[in-house]
Design a protein around this nucleic acid. Structure first.
Lengths: 218, 218
DNA sequence: ATTAATTTTTAGGCAAACCTAAATTTATAT
DNA sequence: ATATAAATTTAGGTTTGCCTAAAAATTAAT
């Protein structure tokens, strides 16, 4: 998880954010725009990062992070947001002036530093801009409002929790084979009732919008 | 004063410290040793830094910082030591494990960050190793302000005076064999009461934190 | 004062990240 | 279906900071 250059971390972070919107591979051009480098530079970097095993990449097909790549990206996001908390809560910066400084601080390498900082700040769950802060295992606070019904077809998401913990509901989704940490692929959304066709563990199933609104995902 | 790369800052810092010992120009070899790079690399860098106006340099004559170069070096030292205070005082790091992290943090560029951090820490004058912290104008605290209780195990310091000159106290330390100009080596600091085990004239002795706070050292 | 040893510099290269310009592939429009 | 446009990749360069090996200057030793 260590041993990535500042530049590599920035590429991984950019791809991480871009892949939330576009649900195919992230395009060379979009990365180039986001990082303000030329597309040719991005191509070169993608080949290198693929070699390193942090992303999947095929010529002209765009990039997608591997698990390792996502770990690095999330760790960088975590550091960025914790430092923003520090700057605003402890050093009295305005929330609008901390981004640039946090861009530098997010690359400081010391796991222990990050964890101690988090403790010192009282384990904040959101940064001054309201963005969620992943914990040391890369888990985002699940009250982040992203529920399954907000996801688009084609997306694959991870179950992070449920809003209403009524036993009946828990039993219901358990029966369907949906549990914490499971990967759900959204195949289709029925327009008239917002119900969903999903794939979980290779099994296809159907979920009402009442249920999907109650499942927190990431 | 801005716009120096991480590497440049490290060269300037190294030359700054080396020039305290050697009072001629700082030699290529000593810099090379200090930074663990090859002498040829140093030569190249010296030419570049001379161009930038941060040091004087003539072939085979060694280097000396200009006023601007010293400013940059001192600013870097200031940042390093403030961050060390932060890590030890706020994040509960041990004083012996903070150097490496501070080496990274010292290169974060934001004047405002440094000054806010200093204020947040309560304008400390010495870092956890007992080294003086220059203020925002690059002025070091006069060393007569350093008291023994601010020094760390392993350090050897010289007695420069006492804060409170009550006769009882003077008699007390005289009895222990501590006098003006004496060299004191700090062997160990007892965590719970900040009392110290010292070595003076090869003799080992024990001193309360009340006493150590009253002794000026250098 | 020469020679030997040491220090420093020069010369030529390498890797990381960037660039421009040209070629190629994919997507779009008639 | 073909032509055009857009996106992407390839090819060849640049700068920063590092390296090794060889040459030159300085310092030390007889």
């Amino acid at each position: 998880m260590n041993n990535y250059t500042l530049t590599e971390e920035n590429y991984l972070k950019a791809i991480y954010f871009l892949s939330r919107d576009a649900d195919k591979g992230v395009s060379t051009n979009s990365i180039s725009e986001s990082l303000e480098t030329k597309p040719s530079t991005v191509t070169e970097m993608l080949r290198k990062l693929k070699e390193k095993g942090v992303l999947h990449y095929k010529k002209y097909q765009g990039a997608e992070l591997t698990e390792e790549g996502e770990k690095v990206a999330i760790s960088t996001v975590r550091k960025h947001r914790l430092w923003e908390c520090f700057l605003v809560d402890k050093l009295n910066f305005g929330w609008e002036e901390v981004h640039e400084i946090a861009e530098q601080l997010e690359h400081i390498q010391s796991r222990k530093l990050t964890d101690h900082l988090e403790e010192f700040l009282g384990f904040p769950q959101y940064d001054p801009h309201g963005d969620p802060i992943p914990d040391k295992n890369g888990i985002f606070p699940h009250s982040s409002n992203l529920t399954l019904d907000n996801c688009k077809p084609g997306k694959t998401v991870k179950v992070r929790g449920v809003k209403d913990t009524a036993p009946d509901f828990l039993k219901y989704i358990a029966k369907l084979g949906i549990g914490l940490g499971d990967e759900i692929e959204i195949i289709e959304i029925e327009e008239f009732d917002r119900s969903m066709r999903l794939s979980v563990h290779g099994q296809e199933l159907h979920l009402s919008s009442l249920a999907s609104k109650n499942i927190f995902v990431q």
